[in-house]
Design a protein around this nucleic acid. Structure first.
Lengths: 229, 229
DNA sequence: TGGTTATTTGGTCGCATGGCCAAGGACGTG
DNA sequence: CACGTCCTTGGCCATGCGACCAAATAACCA
């Protein structure tokens, strides 16, 4: 049986249902983040959501279903938040900066779903993984669009591999979740903007940069051939 | 009686012990990486190491002990590999590039211990975590030394927060482990060198860069104050 | 109000787990 | 050949798991 029938008319009780669902996902997110999916029991989730295990089972047939629902919500929230944040920004490079900041703010907020999506990937069984990978792929494609737009302004170096750039930026930003502490001295927005400046301008000083960059870059690439370290 | 059943290929008994330990850690690393610590059973580790569960228990009293040993080995191997690789490199900036490359090559190699150290952090109970954090802190301090050396050459932008730089670089590099595939079209060395060029020179083209960078950078930092989202 | 459906309760079930161990080799040494 | 040590064997056990459900209850409708 499913809750599809619930969508009657504008009834007040669905609020309670939504609330119970929300409580489950919030509790599960917190526990999954702290201990990982496999180390968390359904009894713990139920207790944290102030209900009995059977009640949880009524809404999610299995523990995997909870994880899948949580991850799907994470993709939705991330895309929604970033889309909303950049809606009023027109400059393509600035859109990347704002998007990065929004992504990190969500990751560092009390919403643990994005963290679980990023770091509990291995807990999904292959069948469910495929579905989630499609969802997650949408978010990555969305970001590729942002990067392409920024690159199309001509402000970027011409030889960039945008897929590699996305991996690079996602790595730097997502890794923040492993060391960020809310009581630290830097806000997520400050971290994101600092990282954006690193990304955009690099770490070396102007004077240390050769007038013509590309040859140096090409030399680095040549040195990276798999011949030998 | 069998006269020399064991006399296979000159493998004395003491070596066999080391071998068994090695087999356990290698099998455990592979399984922990694939499914995570909590989702892996000691029986699976034993089977993958071609021994019975009791034999594994003889060497490691508990599953946690296996994880701790694996992680300690990861720190040792990472520091050892990077130190060896940069031993003959004198230029401080180049030392960073080579170190980054070595770290990534280890992360993408068949040795799963570094991956487990980075991504199965939550599985440690608090007591063991403290010990490991000291070990891991040594590796981070070691990297801070590399970064400080590179920055001291004057080639770097003067206002850099080196701790943030380390987090930034570690994030980008470590995240590679989540998407790298050995049959991909890029080698770890190529990825590392490309990422180093991003780190050093940034993604924007020369002409897109203001002649005097710092004001722009300062403006970004000002915009990142927690006053407004 | 009474009938119907949505939700919660408080358990039970079969099972796999981590930890453990007594008995028995294998093996170099006396 | 007997000895003592190192290591493996194969299975045992209490625990706690995920999944499940029949019955009780709450919320809504006509």
């Amino acid at each position: 049986m499913a809750k599809d029938v619930v969508g009657r008319a504008g009834a007040p009780p669905p609020q309670a249902s939504e609330d119970a669902d929300e409580r489950i996902l919030k509790a599960a997110g917190k526990l999954f983040r702290e201990k990982g999916f496999a180390a968390t029991t359904v009894r713990e989730i139920a207790a944290a959501a102030s209900m009995l295990p059977g009640s949880l089972h009524y809404r999610y047939a299995s523990k995997d279903d909870v994880l899948i629902a949580l991850m799907k919500r994470a993709v939705l929230r991330a895309m929604g938040a970033v889309e909303l944040a950049i809606a009023t920004v027109t400059d393509p490079v600035e859109r990347v900066r704002v998007g990065l900041r929004t992504h990190l703010e969500l990751l560092c907020s009390g919403d643990d779903s994005l963290y679980v999506l990023l770091f509990d990937w291995r807990s999904l069984e292959p069948s469910a993984r495929a579905g989630l990978e499609r969802e997650r792929g949408r978010y990555e494609t969305f970001w590729d669009g942002l990067l392409l737009g920024a690159h199309a302004t001509g402000q970027g170096r011409p030889v960039l591999d945008l897929e590699l750039v996305r991996h690079f930026g996602f790595g730097a930003i997502n890794w923040v979740a492993t060391w960020y502490r809310p009581d630290g001295e830097r806000t997520p927005a400050q971290i994101a903007d600092t990282f954006f400046s690193y990304l955009a301008f690099g770490l070396l000083h102007e004077s240390a940069r050769p007038a013509d960059l590309d040859p140096h870059f090409a030399a680095l690439m040549a040195a990276a051939t798999p011949s030998r370290s």
